[in-house]
């Protein structure tokens, strides 16, 4: 495309720069606020902080059991991801390389519910889980996360497995490798990049989820981070440093992940649609 003149470049850089500041400044402000005392904050809202403190984090940890919420979240996200990724890779590999009568329809079934919004599912899922006495228990939320993440994962991994050459798999089969051997030693290593991308996307989706987490785990003892944050944010509006600390706890893992995996994320985000 035609190069822009340097005057244009300068103008655009200034515009983009201010958009970048509007993105970064709120996050920076939250980070700084989270380490201020309430008094220091109220004395000088936008100035340079005078004291540095971690007491907000300590209060959240001790009095609002955010540590417990963090542990619950890690447990739910971890187990759900392991289950969902293993089930999805098995299914995707089967559908890609071991087609059977009707596998086409199974594949369509996954694609059909890929974009199904949780709005449609919350009432019936809530009723089913309460019938099974799973409301208020971590496994209840786990099975929901596993199931709702499977369709896209299968769709995504199936495309990756299809790109693995049949000749390699055939050679392995002749050498006596069975399904699991071929899956573990050949198929998985060749789709590792896609697999990582998917794992990152799944982590973000589950970590940030609010609706199911709020609905299925309403009790304090089993609450996850996002509902706990929403609760603290709604109740302590007069104590911004405390809310800021809760924001930092919830947002840090996702931002750190972005810093380390932006390459994979960029791939993952743009791969959903048929463009090449």
């Amino acid at each position: 495309m035609q190069k822009l003149t340097w005057q244009m470049q300068l103008l655009i850089s200034m515009v983009l720069g201010s958009v970048a500041i509007s993105t970064l400044w709120p996050l920076f402000y939250v980070l700084v606020t989270s380490s201020r005392t309430l008094n220091d904050y109220l004395n000088n809202l936008y100035g340079i902080p005078r004291e540095f403190t971690l007491s907000n984090f300590k209060i959240l940890w001790d009095n609002y059991s955010l540590g417990l919420a963090a542990r619950n979240t890690i447990e739910v996200v971890g187990i759900s991801m392991i289950c969902c990724l293993s089930l999805s890779s098995l299914a995707a590999f089967g559908l890609a390389k071991y087609p059977y009568r009707g596998s086409k329809y199974v594949n369509w079934a996954f694609i059909a519910v890929m974009l199904l919004p949780s709005t449609v599912l919350i009432i019936p899922i809530y009723l089913v889980l309460s019938k099974l006495q799973l409301v208020g228990h971590l496994p209840g939320l786990m099975i929901v996360y596993i199931a709702t993440n499977i369709p896209f994962s299968v769709f995504f991994l199936r495309a990756a497995f299809k790109a693995v050459p049949d000749s390699i798999l055939e050679a392995a089969r002749i050498d006596g490798a069975g399904f699991f051997r071929a899956f573990r030693s050949i198929a998985m290593p060749s789709v590792l990049a896609s697999f990582t991308t998917l794992a990152v996307l799944q982590f973000l989706g589950m970590w940030n989820e609010l609706l199911y987490a709020y609905l299925i785990l309403p009790d304090q003892s089993t609450r996850l981070l996002t509902p706990a944050l929403a609760n603290i944010g709604g109740r302590y509006t007069s104590n911004p440093p405390l809310v800021a600390a809760a924001l930092v706890i919830t947002a840090t893992p996702t931002l750190v992940l972005l810093a380390f995996s932006s390459k994979y994320l960029v791939r993952g985000v743009t791969s959903g649609i048929g463009s090449s």
Partner: peptide, 18 residues
Amino acid sequence: IGMLASLPALIFVMALMF
């Protein structure tokens, strides 16, 4: 094999989405 591999995922989706 293909059928067995895709069955667990399918059951989850059937039970909790369809």
